[in-house]
Design a protein around this nucleic acid. Structure first.
Length: 471
RNA sequence: GGCGGCGUGGCCGAGUGGCUUAGGCAAGGGCCUGCAAAGCCCUGUACAGCGGUUCGAUUCCGCUCGCCGCCUCCA
C-alpha cells in the first residue's frame, strides 16, 4: 500500500484511491515561454518514477499534465521577439516534449492546453460570479477568497495570517489582498477571447481546476507539483473547486526544488541550468539516477560533480548488465514475482526476494527512492560476488532482478556496448592474437590504439570485449 | 512582518531512542590480471553548537548559530 506526504494533512498518509487499482493523477505542467531548466526536469522525473513504478506493479495510472500556453510571460516574450504569443508557445512546447522524450519521461495520458479550455473556463468563472464568490472590476474578474471557509489549508496558514502576511499589492481594485484574478481584460494586441466581462484571457489558476476535473473527474486521487505551487496556485484551485461545488483532489503532493549553490533554481532569478544543456552534455540517465538518489521532498543540488558521480555509478550498473547479460530487455519479471510470492525465484531465490520486497517497501513509504536504490546496489554487489564465485546462474538471476527494479523506475541499463566498427574489431582480434603469443608490447599498443578510437578493452574469462569510453 | 523547512563522515544522500558505523561517488590497502579494465574483500566510527528529558540520543524537547523556501510569476 502506497503512502505519500499529503500537504493538506501535513503528514505521510496512506493513499486510498477513488477506484481500486487505479490512480488518477494531475501534475501541473510547464508554462511554455522558454526552455525548461533542471527543476522542471526533476519535477517530470519524480512523477514519472511514481507512475512507472505503480504501473510496474499493476496499478493503472491516468496521468494528466497541462501545458499553459497563454500567460503574461508568453505575451511578454512574444513582444520582445516581435512575433505572436502563439508562435512562442508552440515552439517552446515542442522543446519541452523533445526534452521529456530525451529524459525518458513517459508522455502524459492526456496533455491539455489552456487555450483548448477557454470556453469551459468562462463557464466556470460565470458560475462563480453567479454564486457571488467572484466579482468584476475594471481590471477583470476576481475570486473572493474569503468566501471559502478553509482557505489557507494548503498554505497551512489561517486566512487572517495570510492577509497580514501579504506583502505585495498590485491591483487596488481587489477587495482583499488574498483575492486572485480569474479573468484578465485584454490590452490591445494581446491574445483575447470574448466573454461576459469583455475581451480577455483566463487567469492562470483556473485552467488546472477546469482541466483536471474534466479529464479526471470529481474526487480524483492526486494533485501534484513543485513546492512553489503549494501556495497560492493550488490553494486557489481548491478554492475554485469548492465554489463550483466539485469534490477536488483527494491528496496533494509537493516536491522540493533543484538548487544551484544552495538557492532555488528559477528562471526569474537567472539562477538555472537549461535541461537541454544537461541532456547535451551528460548521460540523461545520470540525472534520473541523481533524482532517484535523493528524496523528492529534499532539495537537490545538481553540479558537474554530482552528475559525474552519477555517471560513475551508472557505469558500474552497466558493467554488471554487460557482464551478466541483464539488459533492458529483461523487463519486469522479478518485480511481478514480489507481488506473488508463490512463484519460484529460480536459483538465487531468497536473497532476491528479500531485496525486491525491501525495494518495494521503501518505495511504498513515501517514495523513499534513495533507500530503494540502495537495495538495488546491494543486489548488484551480490550479483558480482556470485559471478566471482563462479555461480553464473545465480549471478545472472540477481543481475536481472536489479535491472528490472531499475527499469520499474525508468532507469534502463545498457548491456550492449554499442556498434563496433570493422577497424576496431580487427584491432581487437590482433590484440588477442598478440596476447596469445605473449607479445604484450604489441598487445598494449593495440589497446592504446583502441582507446584512441574511444574503446576501453575488458578482458573477461569469456574473451575480450570493448566498451565505449566517455567523451 | 506572517508561515514553513533544513544543517549527517572528502562529496552526494537515507535512516533510527540503545545491531545497520544504509547506499553511491571519491580515497587508501589487499585479491584477481602479463599489465590494465571490470569485479570482489577490507579500511574511515559522521550526525551544526549548547542545555534538558532518559538507564541511554544523531534520532525527543528547548535555546543559539548558520542556510533555504512560500507569502509576487515560478516545477
Amino acid at each position: 500500500m502506497l503512502s505519500l506526504h499529503d500537504t493538506a494533512l501535513g503528514r505521510v498518509t496512506e493513499i486510498v484511491t477513488r477506484d481500486e487499482g487505479k490512480l488518477a493523477m494531475y501534475v501541473c505542467g510547464p508554462t511554455v515561454y522558454d526552455v525548461p531548466h533542471l527543476g522542471h526536469g526533476r519535477s517530470a522525473l519524480v512523477y514519472d518514477v511514481l507512475r512507472r513504478w505503480l504501473e510496474a506493479r499493476g496499478t493503472r495510472v491516468r496521468h494528466v499534465s497541462n501545458v499553459t500556453d497563454v500567460d503574461d510571460k508568453i505575451i511578454q516574450r512574444a513582444a520582445e521577439e516581435r512575433r505572436s504569443a502563439g508562435e512562442v508557445a508552440e515552439e517552446n512546447e515542442q522543446v519541452w516534449w523533445d526534452a521529456m522524450d530525451r529524459l525518458g519521461v513517459l508522455r502524459p495520458t492526456v496533455a491539455p492546453r489552456a487555450t483548448e479550455y477557454v470556453a469551459q473556463m468562462i463557464e466556470a468563472v460565470a458560475k462563480m460570479v453567479e454564486k457571488e464568490q467572484a466579482y468584476s472590476t475594471d481590471f477583470g474578474v476576481y475570486f473572493a477568497s474569503e468566501t471559502v471557509a478553509d482557505y489557507g489549508l494548503l498554505a497551512r496558514q489561517s486566512l487572517r495570517s495570510l492577509k497580514i502576511g501579504a506583502r505585495v499589492e498590485r491591483d487596488p481594485t481587489k477587495r482583499s489582498p488574498v483575492d486572485f484574478v480569474l479573468w484578465k481584460r485584454a490590452k490591445p494586441g494581446e491574445p483575447a477571447w470574448s466573454s461576459p466581462w469583455g475581451s480577455g484571457r483566463p487567469g492562470w489558476h483556473t485552467e488546472c481546476v477546469v482541466m483536471s476535473l474534466d479529464l479526471l473527474g470529481d474526487d480524483f486521487d492526486l494533485h501534484s507539483g513543485g513546492l512553489d505551487l503549494q501556495f497560492p496556485h493550488h490553494e486557489n484551485e481548491r478554492a475554485q473547486a469548492a465554489a463550483l461545488g466539485r469534490p477536488f483532489a483527494r491528496h496533494w503532493v509537493h516536491h522540493a526544488f533543484v538548487e544551484l549553490a544552495g538557492e532555488k533554481m528559477s528562471k526569474s532569478s537567472g539562477n538555472y541550468t537549461s535541461l537541454v544543456d544537461l541532456l547535451d552534455s551528460a548521460d540523461e540517465r545520470a540525472f534520473r539516477l541523481l533524482v532517484l538518489q535523493s528524496h523528492y521532498r529534499s532539495p537537490l543540488e545538481v553540479t558537474a560533480e554530482t552528475i559525474a558521480a552519477a555517471e560513475s555509478s551508472l557505469a558500474r550498473l552497466d558493467a554488471m548488465a554487460r557482464r551478466l547479460g541483464a539488459g533492458d530487455g529483461l523487463a519486469l519479471a522479478p518485480v511481478r514475482l514480489a507481488a506473488s510470492s508463490a512463484e519460484p525465484m529460480s536459483r538465487g531465490g531468497v536473497d532476491i526476494v528479500k531485496h525486491v520486497e525491501r525495494f518495494n517497501a521503501r518505495m511504498e513509504d513515501d517514495l523513499d527512492t534513495p533507500a530503494a536504490i540502495s537495495e538495488v546496489f546491494d543486489l548488484v554487489r551480490a550479483a558480482n560476488a556470485a559471478a566471482e564465485a563462479g555461480e553464473v546462474v545465480r549471478a545472472s538471476s540477481m543481475a536481472s532482478a536489479a535491472s528490472s527494479l531499475l527499469a520499474s523506475v525508468g532507469l534502463m541499463l545498457k548491456a550492449a556496448s554499442g556498434e563496433v566498427d570493422a577497424i576496431s574489431e580487427d584491432l581487437l582480434a590482433r590484440r588477442e592474437a598478440a596476447r596469445r603469443e605473449k607479445d604484450f608490447a604489441l598487445a598494449d599498443s593495440l589497446r592504446d590504439e583502441l582507446l584512441a578510437r574511444g574503446w576501453i578493452v575488458e578482458d573477461l574469462p569469456t574473451g575480450s570485449k570493448l566498451r565505449r569510453s566517455h567523451q
